[in-house]
């Protein structure tokens, strides 16, 4: 029984070592410029989501017209700024 257990221990140690060292995989690597561009695109998407939510809340009757207009204008200004920055980054890269 002990011999069997010892054999199993050796077998599983070898299996674990093979599993750990045999694998290879490419890891995602971003240049700083690409990472910056990606972050800006994420921000743009978040602002668009905010605009959609805002519009839906307005349609649902949660927001008064002036609140909606003011928030929408702020978000659009922010979106335009981010889009301009994306274009700049895109041209630079």
């Amino acid at each position: 029984m002990t011999l069997l257990a010892a054999f199993a221990c050796v077998f599983f140690t070898a299996l674990a070592a093979w599993f750990v060292f045999a694998g290879d995989e490419r890891l995602p690597e971003d240049s700083p410029a690409a990472a910056r561009l990606r972050a800006l695109r994420e921000r743009k998407q978040a602002i668009y989501d905010n605009l959609r939510d805002l519009h839906f809340e307005f349609l649902a009757g949660k927001l008064a017209q002036p609140d909606y207009q003011r928030s929408r204008q702020m978000l659009e200004t922010e979106a335009a700024r981010v889009v301009r920055e994306i274009q700049r980054c895109g041209e630079a890269s």
Binding site: N50, E57, G61, K62, L63, A64, P66, D67, R70, S71
Partner: peptide, 16 residues
Amino acid sequence: PLLAWRRTSAASLKRN
């Protein structure tokens, strides 16, 4: 959930 992001006016507060 009833407060708006950034700023909520008195009219919206009353409505909600």
